[in-house]
């Protein structure tokens, strides 16, 4: 085995939210087009650390493995990214793997991102249809609007934009770029626009759009290349216009 290439991986472990965190190092056999998920699977099959100590398999979230379900976001060499598309050959070794730091930890690399789904509720991120019975076609939408809306609707709720945002932390319940961008998407739709003012109002609440401080990390970190800063700017404009108008007209 001397001539086979090894991959050194360091994983931050934590048995539960109450337990202390610790690091474990693993040495794995390199294979072509290996990604971080394959590393974690190799460890699960043979959970022995580099110095020969037996340990438990690593708990982590994953599902589609093609960067569209949003499950496997974690910190890889200090950066928030999807583990499935993190190719070992493109990473500096030892590869450091940690859980996202801005969400409550469950175990090892598993975190609870329920906050994002609750935020979607808060901003009414849906189209208010009357019912699923047959009511004919939807409103016509120009290809131009579709081409703007489609990229926004690609958001996979992975949480990368929250993870990298300096304004998201234990003192600050900022909803984050993804949610603001969803507000833009639903306000853009002819039927969705019927809830526009409620959505904008929700974004003026605690943790609302005002918490954005324009560091613009979100747009760099987004694995789906969503124009998040553009969304924030546009929604910001809509919010203050509505606020000003509301203040002027009582």
């Amino acid at each position: 085995m001397a001539e086979t290439k090894q991959v050194i991986v360091k994983v931050k472990r934590q048995a539960s939210p109450k337990d202390p965190a610790r690091w474990e190092e693993f040495s794995l056999q390199w294979r072509p087009s290996m990604n971080v998920i394959i590393c974690l699977r190799d460890i699960a099959e043979n959970p022995v650390t580099r110095d020969g100590k037996k340990t438990t398999p690593i708990s982590y979230d994953s599902n589609c493995l093609e960067e569209i379900c949003g499950s496997c976001a974690m910190l890889i060499n200090g950066k928030a990214r999807m583990a499935c598309s993190a190719l070992v050959d493109q990473l500096e070794q030892p590869i450091r793997i940690e859980p996202l730091s801005k969400f409550p930890l469950v175990r090892d690399l598993t975190v609870d991102r329920q906050f994002m789904f609750e935020s979607l509720k808060r901003v009414k991120a849906w189209i208010p249809i009357d019912g699923t019975y047959n009511l004919g076609e939807g409103p016509r939408i120009s290809p131009e609007i579709q081409e703007k809306g489609y990229p926004l609707s690609n958001c996979i709720s992975c949480g990368s934009c929250l993870e990298v945002c300096p304004q998201v932390n234990e003192h600050n319940q900022f909803v984050g770029a993804a949610i603001i961008s969803q507000v833009r998407l639903f306000n853009m739709h002819p039927t969705g626009a019927m809830n526009k003012s409620e959505r904008l109002k929700a974004l003026m609440g605690p943790g609302g759009i005002q918490e954005c401080a324009n560091a613009q990390n979100c747009v760099h970190a987004c694995p789906k290349n969503i124009p998040l800063t553009e969304s924030i700017a546009e929604v910001n404009r809509d919010v203050w216009k509505q606020a000003l108008l509301g203040w002027l007209t009582g």
């Binding site: 189209i127 249809i129 699923t132 047959n134 009511l135 939408i141 290809p143």
Partner: peptide, 21 residues
Amino acid sequence: PGIIDLLDRMGVMFNRTPEGL
């Protein structure tokens, strides 16, 4: 066809023709 209409009403960003269909 009714299912497509429903999804359309739910706001699915389907690709469109120049007429908006």
